[in-house]
């Protein structure tokens, strides 16, 4: 008689979030760090295309600029800016944790809200600077 082990029905990470595991700020920021990291990894292709187009010549660069400067391109660039500033700020939070500091519940929440706020401020500042300068 073969009985399927009970372990096979257990939810696998990250699919336990929601039905089995109540989301909190800390866990959501953690998964967001991963998601922004993955998005930025795909974004590196965009950066490589940018400099490669410039090295190829004015025509190739014109094509790239037209795509990047379009509405869809601008929205993606805005999202990319936030992903970068978020991953940067939360990465600094991780580096502080690596020194063994900031693990108290209150400190983890304070740094979490700070990271969210700082990433939004940096993103807005970047785009204000891009249009103003």
């Amino acid at each position: 008689m073969s009985v399927k082990p009970a372990t096979s029905n257990r939810p696998l990470s990250p699919f336990m979030i929601g039905p089995y595991y109540r989301p909190q700020l800390t866990s959501m920021l953690s998964i967001t760090h991963r998601l922004t990291g993955l998005a930025l990894a795909f974004g590196t292709i965009f950066l490589a295309a940018w400099v490669t187009a410039a090295a190829t010549g004015p025509d190739a660069f014109g094509t790239f600029s037209a795509i990047a400067g379009s509405i869809v391109g601008k929205i993606l660039l805005f999202a990319y800016t936030w992903a970068l500033t978020y991953h940067l700020c939360n990465g600094i939070r991780h580096l502080v944790w690596d020194t063994g500091r900031g693990f108290e519940l209150k400190a983890a929440y304070t740094s979490g809200y700070t990271v969210v706020g700082a990433s939004i401020v940096l993103t807005v500042l970047t785009w204000v600077a891009a249009f103003a300068l």
């Binding site: 410039a54 790239f64 600029s65 990047a68 400067g69 970068l84 970047t126 600077a129 891009a130 300068l133």
Partner: peptide, 17 residues
């Protein structure tokens, strides 16, 4: 490096060849 990069891209019109 990334702070410098984001600042530079925002500062200069780097979609101009």
């Amino acid at each position: 490096l990334s702070l410098w990069f984001v600042f530079s891209v925002a500062r200069f019109p780097l979609l101009d060849y």
